[in-house]
Design a protein around this nucleic acid. Structure first.
Lengths: 224, 224
DNA sequence: CAGGAATTGTGACGTACATCAATGTGTCCT
DNA sequence: AGGACACATTGATGTACGTCACAATTCCTG
């Protein structure tokens, strides 16, 4: 999950498990805070998140951290480069993950449908990351957070009569490290959105979108 | 070409043309300033840059621009997502490009070696983009520019006795839009590096690295 | 339900980078 | 060669966001 301008074609894509004629290995079930893999690990499996949320991070020597992506149901995670993982992957909630052998991506291994689905997921990932570049490089704190909330709501939000609601399983510093901000700035930007009645917040981790149009406007750069 | 911490395995990879048993379409030759494709165009071909440099950009509605990557010899550009290009591609110099049919990536089309080479290029692209996230989100102007110069020098620099030298075919605003800065900041950071004798600049577009170790240190965050 | 730790929010203040405005420098063109 | 045009540099000033310090919630555990 990257923060991109909402695009019905990809963002709201149905979360059907990848088509495959191959018998699947058993789904993995993980508790919150479990690590699925670490940066530098050999890649043996890719995973499709089937439920829950995971977090992909990369660290700098001095401790600075970048959250690369959040993995939501439907997302494929664990693409190898030179055979290795290049991020850490930790679960934020209870999660279930469907593993796929790396060979299905790299050699096809007798299942062209699965091979093609994994390849397409990799290509969509490249495009989504390009959107995220624009965000990290060129957007203000308000635009970043508004974009984040819009995309998340489109993907996993629930309708609430006039309003929409979205649960945030990640903490403020995860959001900050994803958007290239500090927790303080994320917090302040949340209260700013709250004070202008665009959102309401329930117990820090539930956001009610009271003015979806205004929020979308902010995400696109309509003067704050 | 993304700005990453130099990694001998990938950065300095040999620029041999992709192995293929398939007869190749003729190489394309382009003059500086030519557009290879635009965002939204249907993808029919991928390209390997064989000489010259190209620039991939994405635009925001209000004109803000992000340079996604520079394409140097050896790089594969034009990966599709949902069949479309998601950046503009313009040449910065005279350039030659080897086209490969999109089907070679997506279906294999009878050339598994080429298919696999294109797939591996896509996977390395994902990893390189993750590095670039760290840079856009978490590095200072000095760290960004130092990283940029280090990576460029490692890939396409030439030895000059004790020093190393690198030619920059892109203008300051291209560098700025790649690093998420303004041209003024890029310019100021260049002169700061120049005044501390870490680099020297010849006619704006040639950089001589006088203290490679110091530059590498700055790129990694050793206090400026 | 109480107490304490972790997370989140707020305030005061500093600064890195943006912005706005000239000025310099190289390049092209007749 | 000379003028002009784009690009790069420099300077003065502004501001969005970071930093540091602490207060308020939330959440966790017994």
């Amino acid at each position: 999950m990257y923060v991109t301008i909402p695009d019905p074609g990809t963002i709201a894509a149905p979360l059907a498990p990848l088509a495959s004629s191959t018998p699947k290995p058993a789904e993995a079930r993980l508790r919150p805070g479990a690590f699925l893999y670490y940066e530098g690990d050999e890649v043996d499996w890719l995973y499709q998140v089937t439920s829950g949320v995971v977090r992909l991070t990369r660290l700098l020597a001095d401790g600075r951290r970048q959250v690369i992506a959040f993995g939501y149901p439907g997302d494929i995670i664990g693409f190898p480069a030179d055979g290795q993982h290049h991020t850490d992957c930790e679960t934020l909630t209870d999660a279930r993950l469907q593993p796929f052998r790396r060979a299905h991506l790299e050699t096809g291994e007798g299942d062209p449908v699965l091979h093609s689905a994994l390849l397409q997921a990799a290509l969509r990932e490249i495009s989504a990351m390009q959107d995220h570049f624009m965000m990290l490089g060129r957007k203000s704190a308000t635009e970043k957070l508004a974009s984040f909330l819009c995309v998340l709501t489109d993907r996993v939000g629930q309708d609430l009569g006039n309003y929409r609601q979205v649960k945030l399983p990640m903490c403020r510093s995860d959001i900050a490290d994803f958007l290239g901000l500090t927790t303080e700035t994320v917090s302040r930007t949340f209260t700013q959105l709250r004070k202008s009645k665009i959102i309401a917040i329930d117990q820090s981790h539930t956001v009610i979108i009271q003015k979806p149009t205004a929020l979308l406007g902010l995400s696109l750069g309509d003067l704050d």
